[in-house]
Amino acid sequence: MTGADPSQARTRTQARDALLDALFPGGHALMVDAAGAVSGHATTAGGIAVGLVGIADGMPVGIDAALSMAETVLAHVERGGDTPLLVLVDTASQVMARRDELLGLNDYLAHLCQCLALASFRGHRTIGILHGAAAAGAFIATALSTDRLVAVPGAAPSVMDLPSIARVTKLPLDRLERMAASTPIFAPGLDPLAATGAVHERWTDPARYAASLDAMLAADMPVRDGLMQDGLVRDGRDALGEERGGRRQARAVAGRVIADATARG
């Protein structure tokens, strides 16, 4: 979260600018509103125009940021065409406040999820760039609602931190830490989440971000991966989780339900 520490905020802004420069040597224009919501546009090294949306500065996603991001996505889709949409993610958890829950924060996060799905269905490839933290519902409504998620250095995704998991499960923290080292299924962090299929690619060298992005856009990955059906990008994350060994049963279980539905439906 952007606290009162201006030097920290400055560092964050500089890091974001460096990321954008590395991704878009062709130029970029970006605005961040008071809730941390990002909007803008950019051009890739290969000359492809893309729209920008997202959440910055580690701000938690509440009613205001969700509405702002949804507006940016909707306007992008309403302009037509097939311009890709990059979703820049550096957030926290969702806003935890009575006011937001009273207003129905779940409706606002769901709306953002669905605007991003609509963009994808309308031919705008959605690519998430995770360069900071993301947790719980804010993770679901931003980074996890894209067709492809890329992690770059700084990415620190989690569902919930270990102390909170310890509180809910009533297990000692040291035991959880030991378990987390050997099983990716509940451990916070990029490695375990990538293993479950949440993250498609990890880019580590800023000098190659621009080329990697153009390659991703040029390869038409959904088609390459056999995930394009009826004009829609299909969700292949459970297969990825199985292949990487971080989520060994999900794809098979879903497949058994589909087989049963096919045989006995």
């Binding site: 996890l144 919930m160 479950t196 994350r237 459970d238 999900a250």
Partner: peptide
């Protein structure tokens, strides 16, 4: 939470 990463992904896949 005991299988938090798989659960979070399942929620996203359901959405």
């Amino acid at each position: 939470l005991q299988e938090a990463n798989a659960g979070e992904l399942a929620v996203s896949e359901i959405i």
